[in-house]
Structure formats: structure tokens, C-alpha cells
Amino acid sequence: MFLLPKGNPLAENVPISKLQLPDALEKLKNGKLTGCAIFDFPAADCALVYDEGKLVTAIVHRDGNEIKDQAALQSLVELMLLASSGTFSVYALSKDITLAVMALVGGPATIDSQEIKLIDFKALLDRIKTEQMTATLKIYTPERAGLIFYRNGATVGFFHDASTGIETSAGEVQQIAGLPGARVDLRVLADTDGFVLDLAGLIDIRALWEASSGNPFATPAPTAVAAPSEPTAPAPAAAASTLSADEIEAAIFDLANRFVGKLGRTLAEKELMNIGSVASLKDPDKLQEFLAAIEKGSKLLASSNKIKEMKEAISAQAAQL
């Protein structure tokens, strides 16, 4: 079971069809995300782990295989272009949890699929503590899975398949450990001496994306294919509410683009990510914070009159939330 923790959701279950991968990754980079982006395809899963906007680890689970880092990014581009459906979510995580997730996704398996009954579990926990490991302990059965995150030997959080966020108590994960046939994986973060490579700098996603999109043998652009199917999506009430927020978000980005240009759009995306999500704009304080942040950057791009008009138009859009 491919399980990653959900932190503060910045985007959740966004249809892949609505996503332009290079733009989305650029947005995560500019927003200095610390956390992870999860792509859920019918036949594969992908996770990208970010540390302050740096893409530090990428993994794709496909047909029982694990593909990592640069190869994972290439695989993600293919999946994005070929998959007919799928969702995309972004979760902000604390630095401590992010490091543990880096261990989970990219770290070597110190203990691999060991049955809990056959090992000295208490000694293992002591070892994590004494060796001051930054690691993730995954406890799982075929049906359930739980994660325990460690930073320098100290427990920093828990997560399991029924969690909606990082938990502070081990209760549910302990229960999973008590299930018959429960197994354990320990993934430890390799010592990098603080040097972390930005994978986004090693591979030109935009060029790869454009090259793959232009392939005459590739399936048609996902946006075009998926758009007509949107009205028939299940759970109409929930979908309508999400779509409405999405539409407002898109309208705000378009306004920033119209008044300030392409950089204005990116600025709006970044600042919106900084305050959480478009839903946060319901709060007048958050709205003011968002407008002030956009204004600060826009002063280098447009006239004060245009900025004023843009702020008014954005406020009007936000009022519809």
C-alpha cells in the first residue's frame, strides 16, 4: 500500500485533466512548498517531495515497481499525458515530517518487510532513538498501513490510512502493529551533510512535457478529453462546490494576468498558496493579506491605477465565495 501523509491541503483531488504539469511544478517551486505533491492515477501513483520549493525526491509506483528521481519525473510526464483520469493533491508539511517523508520515499530500507512478531520491536525503537535517525517506520498489513515519523531519533508524528492529517498519538498505528501478519519497513534518511539536490534543476520538465505533448502518437491533450466528462462526474453537490471555488480561483488568476501580465498570474498563484487556498479568502483578514502581498510584487510590474483596479476586481471575485 502506497501511503503518504496528508498535511495542510493546498490543493486536493484536482482532476489531472485540469493540470499543466510544468506550470503546476513551477507554482510549487515559486510557492516554496515544504511538503508533498501526490498524483493518483488509475494504474500508478506518484509522489514529489518538496523542501522549501526544492524538488528533493520523486517516486512513481507502477505495476509493482518503484521508479525514482529523474526516471520518476519522466514517467510522471508519460502518465500525465496518457492517463484518462487521475487526481492531484498538494499537502504542506512541517520540516520535520518532510524530512521523514524524504526518508520514506527516497531513503534506503534498513529493515525491509520484516514481520513484527519475528523482530525485537522495542529494540528497534531504541535503536532509532540512540542512533538519532531521521526516518519513517511503516507498519502494514495487506489491508492497513500506518507511519511513524522520526527526526533525529525523536517521534514527530503519526499517520495511517484513515487519518485526515498528521496525528500526535500512536493509538491507531499501534493497533495496526497488533494485527496478525503485520510487517515493518524502516527507511532512514541518508546523511547528506545538508546538501540537497533540486531534481527540477536536473531535468527540463517543460521541454519534456512539450516534446511529449507534441508527439503525434500520444493521446490527445488531457484537458480537451476530460472537459466534456466533467458534468457527468459523481457526487454533484460536492463537485459543484469545488468547481465554484476553482472557478473563482481561475478568475482571480485571469484578473492578475490581465492587469499585471504573466508574472502577475504567477504572483497571484504563489500568494494564494501562501495563504492556504482560495477558500481562505472568505476571511477578510486573509483577503487583505493576499491583496497586500499581490500589490507589493505588482508595484514592480504595473501602474498604481492598474493595481488598484486589479485589487477591486479580485475583491469582487472573492466576495462570491
Partner: peptide, 9 residues
């Protein structure tokens, strides 16, 4: 190149 569609480009 980054801001060519901005008003002050």
C-alpha cells in the same frame, strides 16, 4: 523576457 506582457515591460 520574463515580463514582456507586463504593463511596464
Amino acid at each position: 523576457k520574463e515580463m514582456k506582457d507586463s504593463p511596464i515591460a
